[in-house]
């Protein structure tokens, strides 16, 4: 079982290492992630929101839906933990394992 897991890990790792050959070089200003959408944010975020920190501007304004459902996700996680774990004070003894 462990050998099988190691084999799967090695195969997946070698495929991923082969895939990194097509990645853009580290720190390349022309890599695809840096030329499509982010120039608009860098050029216009300060003018449109008057917030010098671009990360905060994008987080709070341009991607407001993302952040809102993020808050909902963490809120749900808190409620799930409470509802899964909480025992009431007068828990009946026959329920205890």
């Amino acid at each position: 079982m462990k050998a099988l897991a190691l084999l799967a890990t090695l195969i997946t790792g070698s495929i991923l290492l082969y895939g990194t050959m097509d990645f853009p070089a580290w720190g390349d200003p022309q890599d695809p992630a840096a030329v499509y959408l982010s120039p608009y944010y860098i050029e216009n975020a300060v003018r449109e929101t008057h917030v010098p920190n671009l990360v905060t501007a994008i987080l709070g304004d341009y991607r407001g839906y993302d952040t809102m459902f993020e808050t909902v996700v963490i809120y749900c996680a808190g409620m799930v933990v409470v509802s899964v774990l909480r025992r009431s004070k007068n828990d009946r003894p026959e329920n205890k394992t």
Partner: peptide, 23 residues
């Protein structure tokens, strides 16, 4: 200026990872 978009995405991804770890 470095690309701010991955920072924003990963800020939310970190919070999701905390939630997943807690649950």
């Amino acid at each position: 200026v470095v690309n701010p978009l991955p920072h924003v995405l990963m800020l939310t991804a970190i919070v999701v990872s905390v939630s997943v770890t807690g649950v």
